[in-house]
Simulated scan of single mutants.
Amino acid sequence: LQFRDDGFTGEVKVDSIGSGAGFERFCKTGETDIANASRAIKDSEIESCKAINRNPIEFRVGTDALAVVVSMENDFITDVSIEDLAKIFSSEAVLWSDVNPSYPAEPIQRFVPGTDSGTFDYFVEAVMLPVYGKEDKENAKKVFLEAQNLSQSEDDNVLVQGVAGSKYAIGFFGYAYYTENDDTLKTLSINGISPSFETAESGEYPISRPLFIYSDAEIMKTKPQVAAFINYYLTYVNDVIVEVGYFPASEDALNAAKQAWIDANTK
């Protein structure tokens, strides 16, 4: 939308289909000019791209990290394993003591994003799926949604207020939003790793993932509007990325992406 607002008069079509499906369209069928992804491209996908004469160029554009938050009044949990975090948000646990006998025998009050949220999908994928779903995402989602005392909202303000209001509440949302409310909430470390720009960017923090876009030099050469869009994207991404709950890419990563664009367009 911003690209159009600033003067582009052509069509920009965006489909939300997940990283794997996006690479299939970009590398196998060649339907798309750009692939968005929340993971790096796989070797097998690179081979598929090469089979249709595409050489994918990677542009790191940001990092997605979730903050798991509790009230400032909470005095019994500071760190949690992925396994226990999944249990906290499952129908298996009603009381905190169901997760760990040292926790209070009080109901877990859960405040979480709505099911239409990408944040919800990512939490299910990164936390619930390894413990309750293995390869069955629907079962992992079911265990989550059938938990007692579950309040869902697309409004992060509602989640903040809910968690801040009870010693026994817990919730999650994008880390960038937590930083705006760190006077009323505390984050939990996961597997002993606290969330930060550095641990998210490196992937050390367990519920973080890189954000990339991919294209190809020949596509940018034959479709200058694609090159212009990527250049515009890399120029302005850090101005807007925090607004949608992500970390910006580091200066080094973004400079490397800009250099990759220059290299692709000056050959």
Rank of each mutant, 00 (worst) to 15 (best):
Gln2Tyr: 15
Phe3Cys: 02
Phe3Lys: 04
Arg4Gly: 12
Asp5Cys: 11
Thr9Met: 15
Thr9Pro: 12
Glu11Val: 14
Lys13Arg: 14
Ser16Met: 12
Ser19Tyr: 08
Ser19Val: 10
Ala21His: 09
Gly22Ile: 05
Glu24Val: 15
Arg25Leu: 14
Ile34Leu: 05
Ile34Asp: 07
Ala37Thr: 03
Lys42Tyr: 13
Lys42Glu: 14
Ser44Phe: 11
Cys49Thr: 06
Ile52Val: 08
Asn53Arg: 05
Arg54Phe: 09
Arg54Trp: 09
Arg54Asn: 06
Pro56Ser: 02
Phe59Leu: 07
Ser71Phe: 01
Ser71Val: 00
Phe76Glu: 08
Phe76Leu: 06
Phe76Ala: 05
Ile77Pro: 03
Ile77Lys: 03
Ile77Thr: 04
Ile82Phe: 01
Ile82Glu: 01
Ile82Val: 04
Asp84Glu: 08
Leu85Ile: 00
Phe89Thr: 00
Ser90Met: 01
Trp96Glu: 07
Ser97Arg: 01
Asn100Lys: 09
Val112Lys: 03
Val112Glu: 04
Val112Gly: 04
Val112Trp: 04
Pro113Cys: 13
Pro113Glu: 10
Thr115Gln: 13
Thr115His: 11
Ser117Asn: 03
Gly118Asn: 05
Gly118Pro: 03
Phe123Cys: 00
Val127His: 00
Met128Ser: 03
Asp136Lys: 06
Lys137Leu: 05
Ala140Thr: 02
Val143Asn: 03
Ala147Trp: 00
Ser153Ala: 07
Asp155Arg: 07
Asp156Tyr: 12
Asp156Lys: 14
Asn157Trp: 06
Val160Ile: 02
Gln161Glu: 13
Gly162Phe: 00
Ala164Trp: 15
Ala164Lys: 10
Ala164Ser: 11
Ser166Thr: 01
Thr184His: 15
Lys186Leu: 04
Lys186Glu: 04
Ile193Ser: 02
Ile193His: 03
Glu201Pro: 11
Ser202Ala: 01
Ser208Ala: 14
Phe212Leu: 07
Asp216Gln: 02
Ala217Gly: 10
Glu218Ile: 15
Glu218Ser: 13
Lys221Glu: 14
Gln225Tyr: 14
Ala227Arg: 10
Phe229Ala: 05
Ile230Gly: 11
Asn231Cys: 11
Tyr232Ile: 01
Tyr233Val: 13
Thr235Lys: 09
Tyr236Gly: 11
Val237His: 03
Val237Gln: 04
Val237Phe: 03
Ile241Leu: 07
Val242Arg: 10
Ala249Met: 08
Ser250Met: 07
Ala253Thr: 10
Leu254Ala: 00
Asn255His: 08
Ala257Tyr: 13
Lys258Thr: 08
Lys258Asp: 12
Lys258Cys: 12
Lys267Ser: 15
Lys267Cys: 09
